[in-house]
Design a protein around this nucleic acid. Structure first.
Lengths: 208, 208
DNA sequence: GAGCAAAAATGAACATTGTTCAAATATGGA
DNA sequence: TCCATATTTGAACAATGTTCATTTTTGCTC
């Protein structure tokens, strides 16, 4: 009843402020890194007070989680585009290698944002929405690789998930151990190829 | 001259305090995580003042780097032990798989300390000693795998380095995405086996 | 032992963090 | 116009890393 009564008023009073605050935070993150994303700083850039920021997001962690979620969504979107543009003729290996290179490239192009996703550890349990988004992205990649993770393919999907973790490791090293760009692309591709081939060989030999 | 003159006095006046401070910091890290390692906290536990801590370590980052270095050294030591105890008959694959499992196990057993090594980003460039220790450990592992990273083996050693990055990625996921322990061991082993087999297959086919 | 200069330890003080909340302000309906 | 409610505000608090004038200790010389 009162739900209806207030229906025609602003449902989300903070809607616009929320958006500009997130934009401001994102800009700071992009240009100066996670360390520069500060309550007062974001408030200044947004044109509101710290208090308002807390009214909207509860904690600064909440704001940062939201920014990270946006980063993750953008990456997922890029992955979807990559998957869509994959030639029909492409095999599993080529598909995954292309996606892996896209991942590396995203991390490179959006260094600060990508780093923030893994640097930021909110106290308390990890943000559920990011977890979900990650699971979804993984599932989409696995399905794009041509594997339906049900029944007998369960094990194969799990192995693929581990390959994704491996790719993440290589990208991490490529990002913050200053590996030459050309080499990084080669190695990211290599881990996909070697991982897949080895896995198949083992399956063929009845080892798995 | 004056070097000799002061030779019989304490060369490193802070030597003992330094050690107890590091122990204190390590204990806090182990029990409560990196976030709890605070200047005042360490000072209290050490039985000195914050000022003294800063006289010794310059910055808190310096202290934490030192603790991380100690973690790294302990891991390297464990790796050396693992390598030493490897049966003569063990092949490259078994050797690497054993080391990878050791790495996973170390990360599990020393969760907070292992996490701190990668969580902590000192402002300014990364600590050179940790970089060096890492390079050394990698070199030792690669040599233990039976590869001499000179001449024609250069490429093979580089690929192996990437395999190590991949292992790190899998362990990272295993640690903070709550993968069942049994599965983690299996997957860490799998990435080694699949990576190596695939790599060899590609070499055999003349693709590398 | 006394005296003294250099070294070391101290902790109050400062700047910056995240966070709170009583007070001020804006809003929208009667 | 008035008022209840919702929203915004920013001073204030606790905790952080860091500094540095001051105090204390040390080790040598006489």
């Amino acid at each position: 009843m009162n739900v209806e009564k207030t229906a025609h008023t602003k449902r989300k009073p903070h809607a616009e402020l929320r958006k500009t605050a997130l934009s401001a935070a994102e800009l700071i993150l992009v240009e100066e890194g996670l360390g520069a994303v500060t309550a007062r700083r974001v408030a200044n850039e947004t044109g509101c007070s710290v208090g308002t920021l807390y009214n909207i997001f509860g904690h600064l962690d909440g704001l940062i989680c939201e920014v990270n979620l946006s980063t993750f969504r953008q990456m997922a979107e890029e992955a979807s585009r990559t998957i869509r543009d994959l030639p029909e003729s492409a095999g599993c290996e080529e598909r995954l290698a292309t996606l892996a290179r896209m991942y590396l490239n995203f991390a490179r192009t959006h260094r600060n944002r990508w780093t923030a996703v893994f640097e930021h550890r909110p106290q308390g349990p990890a943000d559920q929405r990011i977890q979900n988004a990650e699971q979804l992205l993984f599932a989409r990649i696995i399905s794009a690789a041509g594997i339906d993770p049900t029944g007998a393919n369960q094990a194969e999907a799990d192995s693929l998930r581990m390959l994704l973790a491996a790719i993440h490791g290589v990208v991490t090293f490529a990002i913050n151990r200053t590996i030459p760009p050309a080499d990084a692309e080669r190695y990211v591709t290599l881990i996909v190829q070697a991982g897949l081939r080895g896995y198949r060989e083992m399956v063929d030999e009845g080892l798995l």
